[in-house]
């Protein structure tokens, strides 16, 4: 799953540590999220979306689009 978390964080001028505190996660977890090494749970994804005042699908996008059934 891809995301634009780093861009959103940097747009606010926040450090990873500040974002980590805002989400109540570790700084390493923020780094893992930003580099795509960790996909968050749904509750954490909702917390991230709420923090940036947007919806989950605006931050996170799947690597591949789901196959459309005919």
């Amino acid at each position: 799953m891809k995301n634009d978390l780093r861009a959103r964080r940097e747009a606010k001028g926040w450090t990873q540590a500040r974002l980590a505190d805002a989400l109540d996660v570790s700084r390493q977890t923020v780094n893992a999220l930003e580099t795509g090494r960790y996909d968050p749970s749904l509750p954490l994804a909702f917390r991230i979306a709420a923090l940036f005042d947007t919806s989950i699908e605006h931050i996170f996008t799947p690597d591949q689009q789901p196959v459309q059934s005919a």
Binding site: G13, A17, D21, S26
Partner: peptide, 13 residues
């Protein structure tokens, strides 16, 4: 600097 080089957060500590 807003990179992975940031120190640990207050929550981490």
């Amino acid at each position: 600097m807003t990179s992975s080089l940031d120190t640990r957060s207050a929550g981490d500590r």
